[in-house]
């Protein structure tokens, strides 16, 4: 399918690190069923490093591919390094996502951060709350891509179904 890059299709059809870690050190869940996507990330952390990571995702092809790629990007990294992994890194590693799917990569970043925050909270590790504020898809995205996404959103919002309620 031309909608997605080969990388996206590969991570969608053969997702890495799917599953649950029963005794996870940090768990993060973002999204909701009404919007059509939920991502859950489980982290096993040892000596400040991501020893293991698993994910579960309810969502579209790019949501599953973004989760899979995100887990690959953080596995084995130190916590400081993981904090540097942004949605942009996920998009780049996937060789790009269509404009209206960029929020999937944002969700992946947020899920990882939520899992880290859970780990910090559980272990009384201090952190800067600023680092964990709700992100929006706008950040780290080239303006022309954003414009296209905005146009699509506007078109969607203008649909009769919502207006005539």
């Amino acid at each position: 399918m031309a909608l997605y890059s080969e990388k996206v299709m590969d991570h969608f059809l053969n997702p890495r690190n799917v599953g649950v870690i029963e005794d996870a050190d940090g768990v993060g869940e973002v999204g909701n069923p009404v919007c059509g996507d939920i991502m859950k990330i489980y982290l096993k952390i040892k000596d400040n490093r991501i020893e293991d990571v698993k994910f579960e995702t309810f969502g579209c092809g790019s949501a599953i591919a973004s989760s899979s790629m995100a887990t690959e990007l953080i596995k084995g990294k130190t916590i400081d390094e993981v904090m540097e992994v942004t949605n942009k890194a996920v998009v780049e590693a996937l060789d790009g996502l269509p404009a209206h799917k960029l929020h999937c990569s944002v969700l992946a970043e947020e899920a990882i951060r939520a899992a880290l925050k859970d780990y910090f909270d559980k272990n009384g590790i201090p952190y800067d709350p600023e680092e964990f504020r709700e992100h929006d898809a706008e950040e780290d995205v080239p303006p022309e891509v954003l414009e296209a996404a905005e146009a699509e959103k506007a078109a969607a919002a203008a649909s009769c179904g919502t207006k005539f309620k």
Partner: peptide, 23 residues
Amino acid sequence: GSACTSGSLDPSHVLLAIGRPHE
């Protein structure tokens, strides 16, 4: 009729019209 296939934020207006919840 999922939102992701239509490129819009809402799922199919047809499924919503017959009373299917978003999720």
